[in-house]
């Protein structure tokens, strides 16, 4: 027996399995980052000295990265919309752009990290830098995960478009939901770490 509701929507819940699954996954992710944000608040409130983010970190670079990530969210939506409009070539272009933008984000992040590490300011230097490295590092791992999934869907995974176009479109939508979440986390991380 096939597992029902992998593509079609269950009438009484209005959801497909994958869509519900990814929302549950994201709710769990929210709890993960919520715990880290709470830790940040508790550590900062309890500290005697805490630098302003803009004194220690490179705000222009991070601002550039914010633009990059928001753009990648837009291209992700365009990729999904292209499939909806049955334009596969455009889909390849937009998802490819999403992947490239994500890589740009990581490269910029690498230069930021390098700057600190070369100056001898690693995570053990201060609790501020410790939480900076931990949270941006964990966020970076999420970006990396997104790149892997999107690259799979861009390359070998797109064979499904020929056999089950609706299911493939769902997959892009689900990958998109995850990608927007990762983007959203950065939208919170950027002001909290760099501006406050």
């Amino acid at each position: 027996m096939e597992i029902p509701y992998t593509v079609e929507v269950r009438p009484d819940t209005g959801l497909s399995n994958g869509k519900l699954g990814v929302w549950l996954f994201l709710s769990s992710e929210v709890m993960l980052f919520a715990a880290l944000f709470s830790s940040y608040i508790l550590l900062r409130v309890g500290s005697t000295e805490w630098p302003h983010g803009y004194e220690e970190l490179n705000v222009p670079m991070a601002f550039f990265n914010t633009i990059v990530l928001i753009s990648s969210s837009v291209t992700m939506v365009m990729a999904w919309a292209s499939l909806k409009m049955n334009e596969f070539a455009k889909f390849k272009l937009y998802l490819g752009a999403t992947i490239v933008l994500a890589l740009v984000f990581l490269v910029v992040k690498y230069f930021e990290y390098e700057h600190h590490l070369v100056a001898g300011e690693g995570p053990s230097h201060s609790t501020f830098l410790a939480i900076y490295f931990t949270m941006t590092g964990l966020h970076g791992l999420h970006i990396l995960g997104g790149i892997i999934v999107n690259t799979y869907l861009w390359g070998p995974g797109n064979k499904m478009w020929k056999t089950e176009p609706e299911r493939f479109t769902n997959r892009i939508e689900i990958a998109g939901l995850y990608w927007h979440f990762v983007d959203l986390v950065w939208i919170f991380l950027f002001p909290m770490l760099y501006l406050l």
Binding site: M31, A34, P123, S124, F133, T134
Partner: peptide, 25 residues
């Protein structure tokens, strides 16, 4: 399990940083 475990994962990552990267969370 879905909602309570992630904070421990966060805590585990922080303690791992304390152990491995010598931070002081």
């Amino acid at each position: 399990l879905l909602l309570a475990f992630p904070p421990l994962e966060a805590a585990g990552v922080l303690q791992l940083m304390d152990k491995v990267a010598h931070t002081s969370f």
